[in-house]
Write a protein that binds this DNA or RNA. Structure first.
Lengths: 219, 219
DNA sequence: TTTTTTACAATACACCTGCAACGTAAAGTG
DNA sequence: CACTTTACGTTGCAGGTGTATTGTAAAAAA
């Protein structure tokens, strides 16, 4: 077996270029040639690593969600001060908002893929498990603070929380309001579900998130 | 001036076809020929009414937002029982969720346009006024029920509300959960911002929404 | 009736698309 | 040293794309 190259790295290189194209010119501008040019390689090489355009798209999609999950895991593991669940949740949510240039790019790509998946069921299936896992985690954290005190269902609250963050992100990307406004709205909402400092810190086992390994496509 | 035809009607015919294509095969499948075929007309006719593809897209975008606004206005004017602001808000929000086939279609198109606008600033501007107006309206309604009792800022609450609905809609479209689950999450959230039946009905003047007239493109 | 203006239809064009086929250079294995 | 397998680069092709151009029928205006 000759010329040992890191397939995953090459694919990541291409997928990175794809994301750059998608973020700046939209998903519809993503073509083999544009991506190849952006990556500084030949279209033949792109074809070598992705038999079809759809495979390339799906790989890129996996990469962005893996990236987000990795950031979330880092954020969750970083806070050794073991703050309140609310602070933890807030920290995680902040990672999902387009508060800086990089995350805005990611957000645009994610948004593009969202509508891409809306008419491609098998692509949509890819995204589902991610959100499901995340929702379970957030539900746990919510359970930690407000132990069924009021009539709040943690599952529903987590669902709303994720939807809210996604919605805020979309609106910020659309320029409807500033990231600060989104943050303020989020904080006010958090006040109602995770009341200020109701409960103390929780055992560490409760707040680990394991990012899934990026999917391997080929050999 | 010969052959008097209703330009706006013809354009609507084409835009309808565009939305059907976009909803079933995605925005990237929207081409002059596909749209023309779907509408049962020639590509020449499409070109006659839209000098460029972008004009066609923007017109269609305007049509969906006008449609939504019309439905909202109908919903707002329909309830002559003058229920609580909460019921009114809930009724309006329901119109924005993809709870039936038609609204799911609209939602897919809207989602597609969202990512379309994310990389086209002048298109994004189109969408901004809509949400701004809507946010002001919802803020008013929120003010009506909870008159600054707790530390809830009506503006922020309205922002969150719209973001939440959009996020829920996106997730439902992505098949992440059922419309019922989205509705349950929404209701629980409403409990926290618009407490059950705090205030009575409000004067009618407070709840009128005037849908903007669909934009005229050409002569 | 003649003329002009509109509403379309048909076609042509240059460009882009995904993908397949072919070529070749290099690195590992025997 | 062969020899085979991999990793590309190049080219070509059939089809789709937006748009410009041209043609034509019909209806209003003169």
């Amino acid at each position: 077996m000759p010329k040992k190259v890191d397939h995953q790295a090459q694919r990541a290189l291409i997928a990175d270029a794809l994301m750059r194209v998608a973020a700046t010119r939209g998903l519809e501008a993503v073509s083999l040639r544009h991506v190849a040019t952006e990556a500084g390689v030949s279209t033949g090489m792109v074809q070598h690593y992705f038999r079809t355009k759809d495979q390339m798209m799906i790989f890129a999609l996996d990469m962005v969600s893996a990236g987000v999950q990795a950031r979330l895991a880092a954020e969750a593991g970083d806070q050794d001060a073991v703050p309140t669940p609310r602070a933890l949740v807030r920290g995680l949510l902040l990672q999902m908002l387009p508060l800086d240039e990089q995350r805005a790019t990611e957000g645009k790509v994610a948004l593009a893929f969202l509508s891409y998946a809306a008419v491609r069921p098998h692509v949509a299936a890819e995204l589902r498990e991610n959100t499901a896992q995340m929702r379970a985690f957030f539900a746990d954290q919510i359970r930690a603070t407000s132990p069924a005190e009021r009539g709040v269902d943690p599952e529903l609250a987590a669902t709303a929380l994720l939807a809210l963050v996604d919605g805020l992100g979309v609106h910020v990307l659309g320029g409807h309001y500033s990231p600060d406004a989104a943050l303020a709205a989020l904080d006010q909402y958090l006040d109602s579900v995770l009341p200020a400092e109701a409960a103390g810190p929780r055992p560490r086992a409760d707040r680990t998130i394991t990012p899934p390994a990026p999917r391997t496509v080929g050999p």
